[in-house]
Simulated assay, not measured.
Amino acid sequence: MPQIFTASADTRLRVAVFLLGTGVVGALLFGGGYVNSAYVTRVGWTRHQPVPFSHKHHVGDDGIDCRYCHDKVEVSSEAGLPSTHTCMTCHSQLYTGAPVLAPVRQSFSTGEPIRWNRVAKVPDYVFFNHAIHISRGVPCVTCHGRVDQMALTFRAQPFQMQWCLDCHRNPEPHLRPPEMVTRMDWSDWDPDAHKDFGRLAVKAYGIDPKRLDACTVCHR
Rank of each mutant, 00 (worst) to 15 (best):
Val24Gly: 02
Val51Arg: 03
Val122Asp: 00
Ser54Pro: 06
Thr153Glu: 05
His58Gln: 11
Ala131Asp: 02
His174Ile: 15
Arg12Cys: 10
Pro103Met: 12
Gly33Pro: 02
Gln49Ser: 05
Thr96Cys: 09
Asn117Thr: 14
Ser77Trp: 06
Asp10Pro: 01
Arg220Tyr: 02
Asp185Lys: 07
Leu165Trp: 00
Cys87Met: 14
Arg211Glu: 08
Asp124Glu: 12
Phe197Pro: 03
Asp188Gly: 02
Ala204Ser: 10
Gly31Lys: 07
Ser92Asn: 07
Pro52Ile: 15
Val25Pro: 00
Lys203Trp: 05
Val59Thr: 08
Gly97Trp: 00
Val59Arg: 09
Phe197Lys: 09
Thr86Leu: 14
Gly111Ser: 05
Gly145Lys: 03
Ser135Met: 09
Ala16Ser: 11
Pro178Thr: 08
Ala151Pro: 00
Ile132Thr: 12
Thr22Lys: 03
Arg183Ser: 03
Gln3Met: 15
Gln3Val: 15
Tyr34Ile: 15
Lys210Tyr: 02
Leu200Ser: 09
Gln49Phe: 02
Thr86Lys: 13
Leu81Trp: 04
Val217Ala: 06
Arg47Ala: 13
Pro173Ile: 14
Ile132Arg: 03
Ser76Val: 12
Phe5Pro: 06
Ser83Gln: 08
His130Pro: 02
Thr96Gln: 08
Arg67Phe: 11
Val217His: 02
Arg42Ala: 10
His57Ala: 13
Val104Gln: 02
Leu200His: 04
Met1Ala: 14
Thr6Val: 14
Ser83Lys: 10
Tyr39Ser: 12
Glu172Asn: 01
Thr216His: 04
Met1Asp: 04
Cys164His: 00
His130Phe: 12
Met184Phe: 05
Thr153Ile: 15
Cys218Tyr: 01
Val25Ile: 15
Ser187Asn: 11
Arg199Trp: 04
Arg47Ile: 15
Gly60Ile: 13
Thr84Ser: 08
Ser135Trp: 01
Val73Ile: 15
Trp45Gln: 13
Asn117Ser: 07
Met150Lys: 00
Arg155Ile: 08
Arg115Cys: 01
Arg169Ile: 15
Ala201Leu: 06
Lys72Phe: 07
His55Gln: 13
Tyr68Glu: 09
Thr41Ile: 12
Val51His: 00
Ala27Cys: 07
Gln162Arg: 08
Gly80Ala: 10
Trp186Tyr: 10
Arg67Cys: 08
His174Asp: 03
Ser187Thr: 15
Val75Leu: 10
Pro103Ala: 12
Cys69Ile: 14
Gly32Leu: 14
Gln157Met: 13
Ala79Ser: 13
Val141Tyr: 01
Ala131Cys: 05
His91Val: 14
Val35Asn: 01
Gly63Trp: 06
Ala38Gln: 10
Ser54His: 07
His70Leu: 12
Leu165Asn: 01
Phe197Asp: 05
